[in-house]
Design a protein around this nucleic acid. Sequence first.
DNA 1: GATGGCGTGAGTAACGTTTTCCAAAATGTT
DNA 2: AACATTTTGGAAAACGTTACTCACGCCATC
Lengths: 346, 346
Amino acid sequence: MDKSQARRRRVTIIDVARHANVSPTAVSKVMNNAYGTSPSMQAKVRKAMTELGYRPYAAARAMRGKTYTIGVMLPDIRNPFFADILDGLEEALGDTGYQVLLGSSCNGEAAEARVTEAMIDRGMDGIILIAPISSSAHLEYLAHSVPVVVVGRHSRSVAFDTVSDDDVAGAALIVGHLAGLGHRRIAHIEHREDDPVRIREMPNTIRADGYRQAMHAHGLANDIDIVSTTYTQDGGYLGAKQLLARPNRPTAIFAGADIVAMGALEAIAEAGLSVPADISVAGYDNTSFAAFRPISLTTVDQAGHQIGGFTAQLLLERIANRAKPSVQIKLSPSLVVRNTTAPPAS
Amino acid sequence: MDKSQARRRRVTIIDVARHANVSPTAVSKVMNNAYGTSPSMQAKVRKAMTELGYRPYAAARAMRGKTYTIGVMLPDIRNPFFADILDGLEEALGDTGYQVLLGSSCNGEAAEARVTEAMIDRGMDGIILIAPISSSAHLEYLAHSVPVVVVGRHSRSVAFDTVSDDDVAGAALIVGHLAGLGHRRIAHIEHREDDPVRIREMPNTIRADGYRQAMHAHGLANDIDIVSTTYTQDGGYLGAKQLLARPNRPTAIFAGADIVAMGALEAIAEAGLSVPADISVAGYDNTSFAAFRPISLTTVDQAGHQIGGFTAQLLLERIANRAKPSVQIKLSPSLVVRNTTAPPAS
DNA sequence: GATGGCGTGAGTAACGTTTTCCAAAATGTT
DNA sequence: AACATTTTGGAAAACGTTACTCACGCCATC
């Protein structure tokens, strides 16, 4: 039929209005369930809309202030933990009519700013920043342009809401578990951070801090041993190599993220050692491949699904009322013991 | 400063024009490098733009037909193979000024249609569909509304370009490798497909077909053994369980995707068998965790990065000229032999 | 039977940008 | 010096939608 035409013109609200013999205003009102439309009018308009296959043009709606679009900034699309968050998000958004669009490729502060600005420029109704590395001032600035929810960062602002996990408690779970097994030389691989503000706020640094606190609490202050790399598989590989080269090498490694633990496992395998007989390894995030049997990684579960759900809820509330007081939600992690941790070889 | 204001008004082209003492038209012309702007004018306008920190409002541009946005539909955000494609895409797009936004959550034809329609409604300049399951007619329909490039599907259309991998050749590589090692009972786990059109076009069915052809070519027609599940870890687990329960169980399993191989490895480990001593396993995609040493999966590399690059190039060309003849690019896969395949136990 | 209120629908302006014109100025040609 | 041509910059319209304002007719009330 007209599918063969080179380029079809969109069906607009004007077409619907003409078809239903009413004004465009009326069509708009019906669509938005606005006040002042009689039942007969509603029926006429809805009939015309389905007959013409009308879909409102979100790009035009943007000019009037609503796009029904929520942007999510992901720092790394390969980290499967973020997928859990997204699942929770989509589920909570359900059939609210909001469409989620993802922006990725954020390696670095500049790229992150590019993505978030792009989302603002596209008139998104709200944006979700997952573990952003931008300065607090920049987050604050963004939050004044558009409703924002920040995930994973331990900061507090009147301008945006935050959802995060209690990383201190999570680190304590791991250290407690390993110490309970009899380990003393428990090392940690962290994601290097230099910026003083981020040191206070980023989950990775809080996790390292939690490790230090927990080591102290177990009387292992002298055994604190941290290597700084990055939260990537490569970072885990390099970090573990350093640790294995120590004269008195650790009996357990607490990696700051599952993906880091993967790299550590690789370095350990390469060194001809076996896990957990020679050395124990624990991760963080309980990503799907931590559960994968051949690996079966001891880790900390952050309830990504739940995080996503809360995030969606907070964002919707803030979209509805931009002046509402800001909320900080902190969830409690739980320990998942699998097969990469065991008592140290005596 | 004014960051503390409750809600800042955007800087518009009008503000820039006033600041530079020129007309809005002039500002627009300078931005778009249009004809009819003197060097002095350009300087004035650019100065005003930077002084005011102006960023064009993409949502308004959409009303004039260009948003500088490219939408990518991903069927499954957890499959790391797609991340490789995205990397290639972003790299090729480089600093063309286009912003990539991802739409995911496409489990099912309805959700896929929702996402693609949402992208069209947001005025995106072009969309990339990765392994879409929609009917050919629907793809055709989309391509008449917006420039489209389809990745992974073996179809041909005058309305859109396609980039795919030679899945028949890829399957032949695996079967050849296993047969060369001495295997005869080589089974395959496929992604079930019922729709007749999709059977001809989807990469998973082509891969299964390639497996059949290769088995014939090696004189192993009687040993053809296919279980139909899905391209997920669960699908691999269930499929392998079925295969292991066979009275005369296969000595090698060719999983249609790496993630399927992961599930198969899990089922095999659970059955108390070891890989590759008792049974060989091969995957497809060469995802990042296939290379992960503790797994070290034999697989087929599809050059996702390259696929992404070609896709970007084709889309840009089609955006520039919607009437250009359509192009079909088919890339050749390569075999990556690792540690999950070995000669069968004699 | 005039007045007031309310429910219903339409007209109009506005959002920020680009494109299509057109006028004026500058330059080149006889 | 008069005219033709090119260059430069601006005014106005358009894109699709929604919010605001207002007019009309209907009913209840005095």
